[in-house]
Design a protein around this nucleic acid. Structure first.
Length: 272
DNA sequence: TAATCTGTTATGTA
DNA sequence: ATACATAACAGATT
């Protein structure tokens, strides 16, 4: 489900329910799903109070008294809040986070989600975050330009790489490149600093508007109480063979790095 | 019906 | 540095 706006929507809702609440314990339901953390490690945050729940890039971060607990939802991670354990449909449930009066249910039918827990007494949390690029509104264009100016990979691939810029996924990157009038296959070394500046500005505009609308619901995304509405604003993504809403040219779908990619062949010309 | 493809993600390998 | 396979699974397509 999640790119940055969807994760932020989820984080805000979870925060309204669980900020300042104490975790009683975690119950791992589907053991084989956690590849990057041990079951014992989950016990560390038993009895921890949640101080804050927020989003960085596509990461959902629960800050507790002594730890940072990070969930990455990948493709299909989602939550439900229930009152009674008997109400749970256990299909695809990975984890139960038990609170005094409610249970936060974490589901992930493709089991791609990852969990990290970092002790605040160490630098591991900062080290982890430092592997990722800044969010668009904090990007320094000159710095990003230095990173991409010699790359031969397509600009779409570069923008999806979270070590360059955090928060763009397959939907919004198509929308950003459309708004910026740049062909998704344009090689990084052909992007001018001015074009990169346009891309960064449009990334900020589009992600912020999507946050206002609580994300995009294409398949199954809904946060907890909200359905996103940004799907009504999409200009190219999922619009294969439909006329461009600006110029009427038929939108094309291609593959870039194996990802379905939509663009307007009239307004987004490839540079060679 | 069954085989194949696709996917709001990301990492590991070569 | 860059392309490809892989993770696991449901729903759509052939």
């Amino acid at each position: 489900m999640p790119e940055l706006p969807e994760v932020k929507t989820v984080a805000d809702e979870l925060s309204s329910f669980f900020k300042n609440k104490t975790i009683i314990n975690l119950e791992l339901i589907t053991k084989k799903s956690l590849k990057n953390i041990s079951e014992e490690a989950l016990n560390k945050i038993n009895n921890e109070e949640i101080i804050n729940i927020y989003q960085f890039g596509k990461h959902l971060i629960f800050e507790t008294t002594n730890y940072n607990f990070i969930l990455h939802l990948r493709m299909e991670g989602k939550f439900e809040i229930i009152k009674n354990k008997n109400d749970i449909n256990l299909d695809h449930v990975i984890l139960l986070i038990n609170f005094e009066k409610t249970i936060l249910v974490f589901k992930d039918h493709r089991k791609f989600a990852t969990i990290h827990i970092f002790d605040k007494k160490t630098n591991l949390f900062n080290d982890f975050l430092n592997k990722f690029g800044k969010e668009p509104w904090n990007i320094i264009v000159d710095d990003l330009y230095q990173k991409i100016k010699n790359k031969k990979s397509p600009i779409k691939t570069i923008l999806l790489d979270q070590s360059n810029i955090s928060g763009l996924g397959n939907i919004y990157v198509d929308e950003v490149l459309y708004k910026s009038k740049i062909h998704p296959l344009t090689k990084g070394n052909l992007i001018t600093k001015e074009e990169l500046s346009t891309i960064v500005n449009n990334s900020t505009l589009i992600l912020k508007e999507a946050i206002e609308l609580k994300g995009t619901t294409i398949k199954t995304f809904h946060s907890i109480n909200n359905k996103g509405e940004y799907q009504n604003k999409l200009m190219v993504h999922t619009k294969n063979k439909l006329p461009c809403q600006n110029c009427g040219t038929i939108i094309e779908k291609i593959k870039v790095n194996g990802r379905g990619t939509y663009y307007c062949p009239q307004e987004q010309k490839e540079k060679y």
